[in-house]
Simulated scan of single mutants.
Amino acid sequence: MTSEETRSNVEKALEEIRPFLQSDGGDITLISIEDNTVKVRMEGNCIGCSVNQMTLKSGVEMTIKKYAPQIEEVINIS
């Protein structure tokens, strides 16, 4: 898979999960993809949310890996 295809698939994954984040007053932005690691910025209510790490791993990372299985990790750089 090319880097463009990977980025496109990661963006599709974020579009799938974004409505759930936005319904709680949050959002997510893709910052970069480096060496099978996706860096994102959690925004809005997601910044101070006590379960944002669980959301990142159980929701965001799982959804991204569904679209781009080569991704090993998702990191929040807020």
Rank of each mutant, 00 (worst) to 15 (best):
T2A: 12
E16M: 06
Q53L: 13
P19L: 02
N9H: 13
T6V: 07
L30A: 03
S8M: 09
V10P: 07
T2P: 15
G25D: 09
K57E: 07
T29G: 04
S3L: 14
K12V: 02
N76H: 03
I31D: 09
V10H: 02
A13P: 12
S3G: 13
L21K: 09
E43Y: 01
M62F: 09
D35R: 13
M54G: 07
V51M: 12
K39N: 05
T37N: 07
Y67P: 09
I64A: 05
G25L: 07
L30R: 05
N52G: 02
G25R: 08
N36A: 05
E16K: 09
E15D: 15
T6N: 08
M42T: 07
L56T: 10
L14K: 04
T29S: 10
E43A: 07
E43G: 06
A13L: 04
S50Y: 07
V74E: 12
Y67F: 08
T6Q: 11
I77M: 00
E43R: 10
G25P: 09
I47L: 02
S58G: 04
K12M: 04
N76W: 03
V40Y: 05
R18V: 00
K65I: 07
Q70A: 15
I75V: 15
I17H: 06
V51A: 03
K66M: 00
S50R: 08
D24K: 07
E43P: 05
G48L: 00
N52W: 10
M1F: 07
T2W: 12
R18E: 03
M42K: 13
P19V: 01
T29A: 09
N76I: 00
F20D: 10
S78L: 07
K12R: 13
K39V: 00
K12H: 12
E73C: 08
I33T: 06
K65D: 05
R41Y: 07
D35H: 09
L30V: 00
I71V: 09
V74K: 14
A13Q: 05
S32G: 07
P69M: 01
V51Q: 06
E34N: 08
M62I: 10
